[in-house]
């Protein structure tokens, strides 16, 4: 695979986003050119209560919802607090301009947009622990560094588009 020069753009809203807002932003963002991958971070929302006298009961948090991005269903496992988008370096300027317009229209509170490196760029020990040595040959390099070694990739990584 050809090497692509990429850079991360981080959206940091001053409020935790509702699934509807996240869906709206993501759908608009996914239309923009130059996107390589999108990482959604936030506070984890448990499915079941895992501590205390109510242990085992369903939480039914309104923010843990299935959203549709480009007709693909994604289950949000977190209350969205941060969106990191990896963008092709050549398209960066136009991307950020467009992104600002989208956020300006969809959010009625402050937010920060920062450009930098916010994801891992190299394979680390955690990756070897999760996938075993020599795994780089058999998986999509875009996935490296995207997930927590304790989580299941099938739940947290979705391939959308080309």
């Amino acid at each position: 695979m050809d090497e692509v020069k990429a850079v991360d753009v981080k959206i940091f809203p001053y409020r935790l986003l509702k699934p509807e807002t996240t869906e709206k932003i993501l759908n608009q963002v996914m239309e923009l050119e130059g996107i390589l991958r999108v990482l959604i971070n936030g506070e984890s929302l448990p499915k079941l209560i895992n501590y205390g006298p109510a242990k085992g009961l369903e939480v039914n948090h309104q923010d843990r919802k299935v959203i549709k991005v480009k007709d693909k269903e994604i289950e949000l496992l977190v209350s969205v607090g941060e969106i990191i988008i990896t963008v092709d370096h050549e398209k960066l300027n136009s991307f950020v301009e467009e992104l600002e317009k989208i956020l300006e229209d969809s959010l009625n509170f402050k937010y920060d947009i920062s450009v930098g490196v916010f994801t891992k760029t190299k394979t680390t020990v955690s990756d070897y622990l999760k996938y075993g040595s020599g795994f780089e040959e058999s998986i999509n390099p875009k996935v490296i560094g995207m997930v927590d070694p304790n989580s299941k990739s099938s739940e947290t990584v979705k391939f959308i588009g080309d």
Partner: peptide
């Protein structure tokens, strides 16, 4: 959150 409520994992 967007309504101004403090985050609660158990809502």
């Amino acid at each position: 959150d967007e309504d101004g409520l403090m985050f609660d994992a158990l809502q």
